[in-house]
Nucleic acid binder design. Structure first.
Length: 888
DNA sequence: GCCAATGCCTAA
DNA sequence: TAAGTTAGGCATTGGC
C-alpha cells in the first residue's frame, strides 16, 4: 500500500519500448546504475548517504489509527553507487503549549478531545475524511528558551497532530482562545509550531543534510529492487559527518541543455516553437570527466567523437526518450544553466503541448507527476526573486545559475561571461538567430548546433567542479543540519533555526513562536571618520576576527541568558552574576547559565579550527576540497547567527541581543583607537605618534609612523596582541595586512597595495567601494578608474593618471570607443534602447564622460585634497563642463 | 541651484 | 508562507 520508488529500468510504466524510432536500440548499458547486490534485511546492514528528504501521506501500517499518516522519505546513494529510497515510519509532527494552571494528567484526554473537535470543525472541507486530528497530548517538563527566568522548568503540553498541515490551524485556534473542560477560555502561546516537518524530523533523529544513514540488520524491510526499504524512525542510525563518514557517495550528476527553434527575433515559446536538441552529460561526483555524453536531436545529425548521438524524426519521441533517459540514468543531482526557469519549464510545457503524456514524471517516485509552480521569494539580501518550481522527488535540482546568483557578485551572469570569468574559456559561438537555420540545414549544420549544445551542458559541470559547489553545499548542509535543497530554495534563517533547535533540545528548552511586527531599527556599527588623503607611508590594518560571534561568546549573549527588565532583582541575582551591555540590556553570565548561541558559535568555530588543521595535514586533493568547503561553511554559519537575532521579520528576533552586539562592537573599535593612539607615541619611545586614520566596524587602519612595510608588520602584530589583552577571550584583534601606499577617498571607499604574505612584494591592489568593484558602472568606467588607481599606487604617478583619464575621455568624445563597453547599468541600457543606433553612442558617451571625470579627478588630486582644489571645480558638482581647461 | 527622497550597491 | 543585519557613498529625480 506504500507508494513505490523506482527508477525506470525497463519495468513498470516506463517501459523503454520504442515509441517509434531509435530509443531502445541505442540504449546504452552504461546509462544504468550498477547492479544492486541482493539485500538481506536480517543479515545486512544498509548504509547510504542521504541527499534529499521529503514526506508524503499514506495509510498507516496495521494497528495504527485510521486516516493517512506522514511518512518521511529519504533518498540516497550507497558507496557502490546504488540508489536508496528509505521510508521512515512512525514520526509525527508536534508542538508545545504551556500547560494551564492546575492542569494535571487527568485533563489530558479532555484537552485532546476538545482540541480535536475544534480543529475538525475549523476545516472548511474535509476531503481526506480525517477523523482524528490530534493524535496525542502529553505533559512534559520544558523551559522556554526566550529569557532567563531562573531555570524554571514547568509543565508543557506536547500536542502531536496527525499531519503536518494540521499544526497551523491548531496553533491558530489555541492562540485565538481555546476552552476545554472546566478550564476558562485562554489564549495559548505556542512553541515550535512553525517548524518545517522535515526539520522537525531531522532535529529529533539527529539527521543532518547529506549525512550517512545506517539501517542495522533486522530493523528494516525491503520492498523492491535497488534498495527501497522501510524502517521505524527510532531505528535508523545517523552518523555525524566525521572520520569515514565525511565521504561522499558516487552521486550521479546530470547536466543538460536544450535548444529550441525559435522564430526570428522572438524568444522561444513552448506552445509554438519545437525543442530540437537536448544535450546531456552525466558525471559521478568526484570523478574528473563525464562518463555519459549524449545528444538527442530532431532530424539526422552527423556523428560527434566522444558523444552518443540519438536522432529522432518526431519531436514527441525525442521528448519522451529524453525523459526515459533521465529516469534510466537516475540522476541524483540535476544541473545545467538556468534549467530551473528555462529548460525544465520549457520541456514540461512543450511536452504538454505535444501531449507526451509519459514525459512529466521526472522524479524517482513512480506515479508522481512533475508539475510547474510559480514561487515568489523575497528577502532583503536577495531582493524579490520570481522562480519556477518543478517537483522532482529524489533528485536535487542544482541549477548553476541559481548557485552563482546566491554566492557570487558578478557583472554578468551569462554562461559565456561566467565561463570566461572562472575557466577562461568561451562558449561555442552560435548566434541565437541562426539556430533555426542550422536546424533547417543538413546533418552537418545540425552537428554544429549539437556541438554547441553539448558544450552548454558540459560547462556547468566544469564550473560546478571548479567552484566545488556540490562539496561546499554538502558541507553547509551537514554543518547547519538542513537538507541540501533548502540551501538553494530557502533563506539564511532556517539554517540557524536548525542549529538552535538541536542545541535547545539537549537542554530541554523549547522555542517560542513569536509574532512578527515591524519595529524600530537599531544602531549598527561605527565607521570612524576617515582622514581622507593619499598616504605614501605604510598603513597597518588591525581586525577583530569574527567580531560579532566573538562578542556573543565573550559576553554570553543569548535568548536563554537575557534578563527581562527588573528580573535580575526578582530572581535575586547578585551583580557578579549578570552584565549590563552598552545598550543597557542585561544578560546572566555563563557561570549562571551558558547560552545556546555561544554554544553553537563555539561548536562552529572550534569545528572550523579542526577543519583547518586537518586541511593542513591532508594530502588527498579531494578530501582537501571537502575540508576547505567545511571551514568556509562554518565561518559563514557563525557570521549569520547575529543577523538572525536582528531579523525583525524572522523566526526569533531578539533586538536586545543584536543591539548589544553592535553596542559592544562600537565600544571596542573606539577603545582600540584610544589604546593604539595612547601607547604608540613619541613619548613612549616609538618613531611617531600613531594615528588611526580610518576604521569600519571591526577594523582600524593605523599610521604608525614607520617607513617600511616590515616595520609596520612588526609593530602592527605587537599592537594587535597588546590590544587583544584588554578584551575578554575569545575576542581577539589580529594584524591583517599593511597598505602601502594607501588612498583613502571616503568612508567605505579606499584602495591600496596589499601586503600580507611578504613585506617585499604586494599581494594585490585592494579596492573597496570604488567604481572598479561596483557593478552599476560600465566596464569603461571601471577600467579607466582601475588604470588610474594602478598608475597612482603602483607607478606613483598621479600626473600619468590624469593624462590617461583625459585620453580616454577624448576617445569617448571622438567616437573612438565601442558602444558595448558603455552599456551596463539598467539606466544606461534603457537609454541605449531608446536612442537605438546613432544617437545612443553620443548620449552614452556624454553620460560616461562626466562620470569618468567626476570619479577620476578626486582620485588623482587626493594628495591635495583639502587645500588646493581649484575653486571653479570644487565640490561634488564638479564636472568637465565646469572645468574645460582640464580636457584640453 | 538646493534639498530631500529614492534606488542601487557596497563594506563590514 | 518565508524573508540575516546596519552604515553609507553617490547618481538621479522631483519639488520648490
Amino acid at each position: 500500500c506504500l507508494p513505490i520508488c523506482r527508477q525506470a529500468e525497463g519495468t513498470g510504466v516506463f517501459s523503454p519500448k520504442l515509441t517509434g524510432d531509435l530509443f531502445s536500440a541505442d540504449l546504452n548499458p552504461r546509462w544504468r546504475r550498477p547492479l544492486a547486490a541482493p539485500l538481506e534485511p536480517d543479515l545486512d546492514t544498509l548504509i547510504f548517504q542521504q541527499i534529499d528528504l521529503d514526506y508524503y501521506l499514506a495509510p498507516p501500517q496495521p494497528g495504527y489509527q485510521s486516516g493517512n499518516v506522514p511518512i518521511i522519505r529519504m533518498f540516497g546513494v550507497t558507496d557502490s553507487g546504488n540508489s536508496v529510497c528509505c521510508h521512515v515510519h512512525g514520526f509525527a509532527p508536534y508542538f508545545y503549549v504551556p500547560a494551564p494552571n492546575g492542569f494535571t494528567s487527568d485533563h489530558l484526554s479532555e484537552f485532546k478531545r476538545e482540541l480535536n473537535s475544534v480543529v475538525l470543525k475549523d476545516m472548511r472541507s474535509n476531503k481526506d475524511n480525517i477523523s482524528v486530528t490530534v493524535l496525542a497530548v502529553d505533559i512534559t517538563r520544558k523551559e522556554s528558551m526566550y529569557g532567563y527566568h531562573g531555570k524554571q522548568i514547568s509543565d508543557f503540553l506536547r500536542i502531536t497532530m496527525a499531519m503536518p498541515r494540521l499544526i497551523a490551524p491548531a496553533k491558530r485556534l489555541l492562540e485565538l482562545g481555546f476552552r476545554f473542560g472546566t478550564f476558562p477560555m485562554q489564549n495559548y502561546s505556542t512553541y515550535e509550531a512553525n517548524i518545517d516537518f522535515e526539520i522537525r524530523f531531522m532535529v529529533d533523529s539527529g539527521v543532518v543534510g547529506c549525512c550517512w544513514i545506517e539501517l542495522p540488520k533486522g530493523t528494516y524491510r525491503v520492498s523492491l529492487c535497488q534498495y527501497e526499504v522501510d524502517v521505524g524512525w527510532t531505528q535508523l542510525i545517523s552518523h555525524p559527518a566525521e572520520g569515514e563518514y565525511q565521504r561522499i557517495a558516487p552521486l550521479r550528476v546530470l547536466s543538460f541543455d536544450i535548444e529550441c527553434a525559435g522564430r526570428k527575433g522572438i524568444f522561444p515559446e513552448a506552445d509554438k516553437d519545437p525543442v530540437i536538441q537536448i544535450a546531456s552529460m552525466v558525471q559521478r561526483q568526484g570523478e574528473k570527466e563525464p562518463f555519459i555524453r549524449t545528444i538527442f536531436t530532431l532530424q539526422s545529425c552527423s556523428s560527434i567523437v566522444g558523444s552518443q548521438v540519438l536522432c529522432f524524426t518526431k519531436e514527441n519521441q525525442l521528448l519522451q526518450s529524453w525523459a526515459e533517459f533521465l529516469r534510466t540514468v537516475d540522476a541524483d543531482i540535476v544541473t545545467g544553466y538556468n534549467i530551473q526557469n528555462f529548460d525544465l519549464p520549457y520541456l514540461l510545457n512543450r511536452a504538454a503541448t505535444l501531449k507526451v503524456n509519459m514525459f512529466p514524471y521526472l522524479g524517482r517516485v513512480r506515479g508522481i507527476k512533475s508539475v510547474l509552480r510559480d514561487s515568489n521569494f523575497q528577502s532583503k539580501q536577495m531582493g524579490r526573486r520570481e522562480n519556477k518550481i518543478l517537483n522532482m522527488e529524489g533528485r536535487v535540482q542544482f541549477d548553476l545559475l541559481q548557485v552563482l546568483l546566491r554566492d557570487y557578485k558578478l557583472r554578468s551572469y551569462t554562461l559565456n561571461a561566467v565561463s570566461f570569468h572562472f575557466l577562461q574559456e568561451q562558449k561555442e559561438d552560435v548566434q541565437h538567430s541562426i539556430i533555426t537555420d542550422l536546424q533547417n540545414g543538413n546533418e552537418q549544420t545540425r552537428r554544429r548546433l549539437a556541438v554547441y549544445c553539448l558544450k552548454d551542458a558540459y560547462l556547468p559541470l566544469r564550473l560546478l567542479q571548479k567552484l566545488m559547489c556540490v562539496i561546499n553545499y554538502m558541507e553547509m548542509a551537514r554543518v547547519t543540519g538542513v537538507p541540501l535543497t533548502y540551501l538553494l530554495s530557502r533563506g539564511q534563517q532556517i539554517k540557524v533555526v536548525s542549529q538552535l533547535l538541536r542545541q535547545a533540545m539537549k537542554q530541554g528548552l523549547v522555542m517560542p513562536v513569536v509574532k512578527i511586527e515591524g519595529g524600530e531599527d537599531y544602531t549598527g556599527a561605527t565607521v570612524i571618520e576617515p582622514e581622507k588623503g593619499y598616504y605614501s607611508v605604510p598603513i597597518a590594518t588591525l581586525d577583530f576576527s569574527s567580531l560579532y560571534p566573538s562578542i556573543m561568546m565573550a559576553h554570553n549573549l543569548c535568548y536563554t541568558t537575557l534578563l527581562q527588565k527588573g528580573s535580575a532583582v526578582k530572581l535575586g541575582l547578585s551583580p557578579e552574576e549578570f552584565i549590563k551591555t552598552p545598550t543597557g540590556d542585561h544578560f546572566v553570565k555563563s557561570s549562571v547559565r551558558k547560552g545556546l548561541l555561544p554554544d553553537i558559535l563555539e561548536d562552529l568555530l572550534s569545528a572550523r579550527k579542526r577543519a583547518k588543521a586537518e586541511l593542513k595535514k591532508e594530502t588527498d586533493p579531494f578530501k582537501k576540497q571537502v575540508l576547505d568547503g567545511r571551514q568556509l561553511a562554518l565561518k559563514i554559519s557563525a557570521n549569520s547567527v547575529y543577523g538572525f537575532t536582528g531579523a525583525q521579520v524572522g523566526k526569533l528576533p531578539c533586538l536586545e541581543i543584536s543591539q548589544s552586539v553592535t553596542g559592544f562592537g562600537r565600544q571596542m573599535i573606539e577603545q582600540t583607537k584610544q589604546l593604539v593612539e595612547s601607547k604608540y607615541t613619541l613619548s613612549n619611545g616609538y618613531p611617531a605618534d600613531a594615528k588611526v586614520i580610518y576604521g569600519d566596524t571591526d577594523s582600524v587602519m593605523v599610521k604608525l609612523g614607520v617607513d617600511t612595510v616590515s616595520k609596520a608588520m612588526e609593530v602592527g602584530r605587537e599592537a594587535a596582541e597588546w590590544v587583544s589583552s584588554h578584551f575578554i577571550p575569545p575576542i581577539k584583534l589580529e594584524f591583517e595586512k599593511v597598505y602601502y601606499p594607501y588612498l583613502l577617498i571616503n568612508k567605505k571607499r579606499y584602495a591600496g597595495l596589499y601586503f600580507s604574505s611578504s613585506a617585499e612584494t604586494h599581494d594585490k591592489m585592494d579596492c573597496k567601494g570604488i567604481e572598479t568593484v561596483r557593478r552599476d558602472n560600465c566596464t569603461l568606467v571601471a577600467n579607466l578608474i582601475n588604470t588610474c588607481l594602478q598608475t597612482i599606487l603602483i607607478d606613483r604617478d598621479p600626473q600619468g593618471a590624469v593624462a590617461h583619464a583625459k585620453e580616454v575621455i577624448s576617445d569617448l568624445l571622438c567616437n573612438r570607443i565601442d558602444i558595448s563597453q558603455l552599456v551596463i547599468t539598467k539606466e544606461l541600457t534603457r537609454t541605449a534602447q531608446e536612442y537605438a543606433g546613432k544617437q545612443a553612442h553620443v548620449e552614452l558617451a556624454e553620460r560616461i564622460r562626466s562620470t569618468c571625470w567626476r570619479t577620476t579627478f578626486p582620485l588623482t588630486h587626493s594628495t591635495t585634497w583639502n587645500s588646493s582644489c581649484p575653486s571653479h571645480c570644487s565640490g561634488s558638482s564638479m564636472s568637465v563642463h565646469g572645468c574645460p581647461s582640464l580636457l584640453a
